[in-house]
Write a protein that binds this DNA or RNA. Structure first.
Lengths: 341, 341
DNA sequence: CTGTTAGCGCATTCAA
DNA sequence: TTGAATGCGCTAACAG
């Protein structure tokens, strides 16, 4: 390792040429003779030289960076902990790095959503991928109505002016509920806090109940977490207020917490209570009982988010995508049901 | 929303003062009269003005950004999928954003580890948090021997010249193994691929066996994943080659995969086979049976990584930290054991 | 208290 | 085929 050459000027001096020649040589510009190019590139490599990104960005007015923005509910805990989000984030980081983009990970309180424009305005990021429209769809709409390079994870709404990639949550909610009906469940509760996307799942649940001629719906308000699900369920059971034979959980995490509480209380899943989750997180297949759920394919979702954004960046006109929401039937819901008369 | 003011110069013109005054006013420099400061800050706010980060970074020769580098094994799958890593990443993002730092998320093939210096050299990041020394400790040592602002997640090694935050993997491996011995296990296998950290856990496993007078160790080579663990275990069971009554799994994921395979084959956990995991991922407490494991506290770990790095950045002298590795006893390993004669 | 000036490192226009 | 000069937007030393 020879001495440190940290700027173009250093390299130029070392090579005995001008800065502009080095700049061109490094970008493999054909204006420069092949010989010079080779020589300079070799030199740069030898000295482990890399361009100063800030200077380059300033000059080029772009950043080669995509900001992934996580909008965090202010009253809930502020950390990024949802396994589904974390998992799709991993996919996005992969995809983006394959396209030679850097990923800037930022989290914002929901109510500060308006600040996210700054990443674009200050050329901090070339594009944005946003999670959490759930609690701030209206903010986003106000901000993103122009043709900005932004893709939002979540459901399309008629009002929204921005491009989204997401799954059909109403359909998903309907599917699991219908499935539980087919398994013979009579009293089916919906467990989850009704934020944006989960509210849609709830809506699907309602639709399915109504289609089955059931008038009463049951909502258990549980925020996204194992612990909360466990506690709420345990309390209900302790007070003898748990009267359901089926539960549509708004997420796999919630389903897991409930299953534990039920099991500790001596209830069998699925015999006494059939349960479905939502997301198909990695462990869903590996628990006992394995979890019936709606798959949200993180690989497909992440890839689609990235591709949509890159297409936008390339000037193509893009539209929102609705990903499929397949029902994955496993043990936690299967108990023969009516179909087996 | 008035017209777009995108640079300091624009703001200065609008305010009828010089650029430097605006610059100072925005940084709340007391050189500027309170009145002027207030006026300019109000103006900036009204126009939703933010500084251009690239220009600012270039001028200041710093970036207010921490790069989190994930070193990915080249022959394994390239994606960021380990739930433990993802979870600690969430914590880091939190902590860093509370300290007003941005997080640049980058993944690199292990063998390209030497490129990670560039983030520092080009002032792309003020500091680095690195995961995955496991497979590239020697590369890192070669790179990071200077007093660079870098903190590596993982175990300390005598050779390593860099600062680490991690848990005592040897101790952890020893603890679970001793625990299984206490539960009466006679033939205990270690399940996991022997990379850096897991090799240390394996070493602890060996120590515990030797201390118990057991000469034979059993190693099942399983990479980090549910699926691989499931397949390998299933194959062993199908061939009647699974002869263990205890398993020390190198990660919770592996434990889950194995438990599923065992359960499908009609083996009971913990009665027929007692199993321990490693990490204490969120679901560990919520599965059936709940998983005995070694806790790696992601909150503590992430916080410590960040604090150590920030201290380094502040010029303080810091040293490596070894976090506690508590044994969390749950159902998957408990079967009375010898102590109940 | 405020303004003028210079320069961070790079890409690019214009001139040679 | 190469070099000299300019400016991206910002901060800070120096002057006033």
């Amino acid at each position: 390792m020879t001495k440190k050459l940290s700027t173009l000027a250093d390299l130029a001096r070392e090579a005995g040429v001008s800065e502009s020649t080095v700049s061109r040589a490094l970008s493999n510009n054909t204006l420069i003779s092949q010989k010079t190019r080779d020589r300079i590139q070799a030199l740069a490599h030898e000295h482990n030289f890399t361009l100063n990104t800030a200077a380059r960005n300033l000059r080029l007015q772009k950043s080669n960076t995509i900001a992934v923005v996580l909008l965090i509910d202010s009253d809930a805990d502020q950390s990024v902990s949802d396994p589904f989000i974390l998992s799709i984030l991993g996919v996005i980081a992969d995809e983006l790095s394959q396209h030679r983009y850097d990923v800037l990970l930022v989290s914002h309180r929901t109510k500060d959503a308006k600040n996210i424009r700054q990443y674009l305005d200050t050329k901090r990021a070339d594009g944005l991928i946003v999670f959490g429209q759930g609690d701030s769809g209206e903010h986003l709409s106000a901000l993103l109505n122009q043709n900005l390079p932004v893709v939002v994870w979540g459901a399309q709404t008629p009002a929204a002016s921005y491009v989204t990639v997401g799954t059909d949550n109403v359909l998903g909610g309907r599917r699991v509920t219908e499935h539980l009906r087919e398994q013979g469940c009579q009293r089916i509760a919906f467990a989850g806090h009704l934020s944006f996307e989960t509210a849609q799942r709830y809506q699907g649940y309602r639709q399915a109940l109504e289609a089955a001629g059931l008038r009463n719906s049951h909502h258990l308000d549980i925020h996204f977490s194992y612990e909360d699900a466990y506690q709420v369920t345990k309390t209900l059971l302790d007070n003898n207020e748990f009267s359901y034979d089926g539960v549509v959980a708004a997420s796999d995490s919630i389903a897991l917490g409930m299953i534990r509480a039920l099991s500790e209380a001596g209830k069998r899943v699925p015999e006494d209570v059939a349960i479905t989750g939502y997301d198909d997180i990695a462990v869903a297949a590996y628990m006992q009982p394995s979890l019936t759920t709606i798959r949200q394919d993180t690989r497909a979702g992440g890839t689609c988010l990235v591709n949509t954004l890159l297409a936008q960046l390339a000037g193509e006109s893009v539209q929102s995508t609705l990903l499929d929401t397949p029902l994955i039937v496993r043990q936690s819901s299967q108990r023969g049901g009516q179909s087996h008369q």
